[in-house]
Structures are given as C-alpha cells and as structure tokens.
C-alpha cells in the first residue's frame, strides 16, 4: 500500500478516522456517545482517543456528572486542519 504514504498515519486508521469524522460535525461529544456511534470497545477507544489527544488533534476534558466521571472530547484547530488535509489527499488518490 505504497499509494497511501502521504496520508496522515494518525488519521488513516479505521477507529481514529471515525472519531475525528464524528467530532468534525459536532461541537463536543461525550466518551459514551463516541463509543456508541463507533461501536468500539471502551479500552480500544480510550487508547485511540489518547493518541489523538497527544497529537493535539482533540481536546479531552475530564469532569463529573453527578458522581459519574465524564470525559468530553472536542476537535481542535490542529485537528480540523489535519482532517482537511487528509480529505484533500484522499481526493487526489480518488481522482
């Protein structure tokens, strides 16, 4: 799969791309919501969210809703730019 060497490896993964696409279209989303929509396991999702957060693609806020811990994710400007670049690169491959 040499064709894909220009595609951002951080985004070119099923689950991370799904997380980023979801966050592109909303203002913010809770962990449970992302889990439900992507169908991923909590463990895997945590790992991938961590990777995206470390790259500053998303901003993760931890708080409490009543007594339950609450993790909210939001896409950052860096993340939006990376996503747009990824889509542009994708377009070139398709054309």
């Amino acid at each position: 799969m040499n064709h894909f060497k220009d595609l951002d490896p951080l985004l070119h993964s099923q689950l991370r791309l799904a997380i980023m696409s979801l966050l592109m279209s909303v203002k913010s989303a809770e962990f449970v919501h992302i889990k439900e929509k992507t169908g991923a396991t909590a463990g895997n999702l945590s790992v991938q969210i961590d990777k995206l957060s470390k790259a500053d693609y998303i901003q993760v806020t931890k708080s409490f809703k009543g007594k339950k811990p609450l993790t909210t994710c939001k896409i950052t400007k860096v993340g939006i730019n990376a996503f747009e670049e990824y889509v542009n690169a994708l377009k070139q491959y398709i054309n």
């Binding site: 791309l17 279209s25 994708l90 398709i94």
Partner: peptide, 24 residues
C-alpha cells in the same frame, strides 16, 4: 472496529460519510 487493518480510500470515505450522518 479493528485497528490494524489497512484502509483503502473508498473505505476511508465510507467511514467519514457514515460518521457525519450519525450526527443528524
């Protein structure tokens, strides 16, 4: 969702479209 699988451009587009439609 499996993590390791190599994506094709069509699959990538499919993921993006599906996730964006989820928010409707």
């Amino acid at each position: 969702m499996k993590e390791e699988k190599e994506l094709t451009s069509t699959e990538s587009l499919e993921i993006i479209t599906r996730m964006i439609q989820q928010t409707k």
